[in-house]
């Protein structure tokens, strides 16, 4: 295992990043049987920044993200969160450490209300011992605060998710990830299923998360979106982190060349 302290961050070009490094991955490797899905991945995520991971299908983006979110455990290497080495046994542990994931499927329960989804498995209760009952009023009020705090366009927190549009659902899922003092929000293809107008709203929401000082990790196939939103781009190719660029110092063409391997870091 390489020493995580001595290695400087990868070359980042002339524009220097501003936020503190929140998540530092060094030498992360993972194999599924004989398939080496991740090979010595080194990358950093900074607080107050949107970091994008791009790469072809099968390049290891999702696998890496799942290592961060606690779904997979790396065979080798270290992941540090806020300076402390972490090793999550399951997604719940990652959640408790402040790493929230917005799944592509959104993980919302359609027949429950918005507020119930926002508080799912983190319900507020009142009372003592075995007689604890839900604090429905408190959760509804909290849900309203969460929604208005991010200026999310959701009609009412008492609506069933079933009645929301795709963009509104995405907003609810992001809102849930942003709540509860999360430090890192992982988003997998957040606007893949959305129209132009809804994509704009969701992107504005993602920017607000960044401006609140959270780290956002974006997995996207949409280069225009990556160039529009991100501060830092990491390119993955066949299980390796092939290159890292500050978004403002690169171009879509260069990223594509890095992804295909036409250009090396």
């Amino acid at each position: 295992m390489s020493s995580p302290t001595t290695t400087a961050p990868r070359p980042t070009g002339p524009s220097e990043p501003t936020g503190d490094v929140l998540l530092r991955a060094r030498g992360v490797s993972l194999s599924f049987g004989s398939v080496r899905a991740l090979k010595d991945v080194d990358l950093d995520l900074r607080a107050g920044e949107i970091t994008a991971i791009v790469g072809d299908n099968g390049a290891g983006k999702s696998t890496f993200v799942k290592c961060v979110a606690g779904v997979h455990r790396p065979d080798d290497g270290t992941i540090e969160l806020g300076g402390d080495a972490v090793s999550f046994r399951d997604p719940q542990e990652a959640r408790e450490a402040g790493i929230e994931t917005v799944h592509q499927s959104l993980a919302l329960v359609e027949d429950l209300a918005v507020w119930q989804n926002l508080y799912l498995n983190r319900e507020l209760t009142k009372g003592v011992g075995p007689f604890r009952v839900l604090d429905r009023r408190g959760m509804r009020a909290g849900a309203r605060d969460m929604v208005s705090g991010l200026s999310v366009n959701v009609p009412s927190t008492t609506s069933r998710v079933r009645r929301l549009s795709g963009g509104q659902r995405q907003a609810v899922a992001i809102c849930r990830a942003a709540g509860f003092s999360s430090r890192l929000v992982i988003m997998d293809e957040p606007t893949a299923a959305l129209g132009v107008q809804e994509t704009e709203r969701v992107e504005a929401l993602i920017r607000r998360l960044r401006d609140d000082g959270r780290a956002v990790l974006l997995v996207s196939h949409n280069f225009e979106q990556v160039m529009r939103l991100s501060d830092q781009v990491w390119v993955m190719r066949s299980g390796r982190c092939a290159a890292g660029r500050r978004t403002e110092d690169t171009t879509g063409e260069e990223i594509v060349a890095l992804i295909t391997g036409a250009k090396s870091a």
């Binding site: 399951d90 997604p91 719940q92 959640r95 994931t101 799944h103 499927s105 959104l106 993980a107 919302l108 329960v109 359609e110 027949d111 429950l112 119930q116 989804n117 799912l120 498995n121 983190r122 319900e123 209760t125 604890r132 009952v133 839900l134």
Partner: peptide
């Protein structure tokens, strides 16, 4: 109760229930 909500969540969307722990 939390249990009741989890029953409805597990029935409505097992994936979502699992994803939230």
């Amino acid at each position: 109760t939390r249990f009741g909500t989890h029953v409805l969540a597990a029935g409505g969307s097992p994936e979502a229930a699992t994803a939230t722990g």
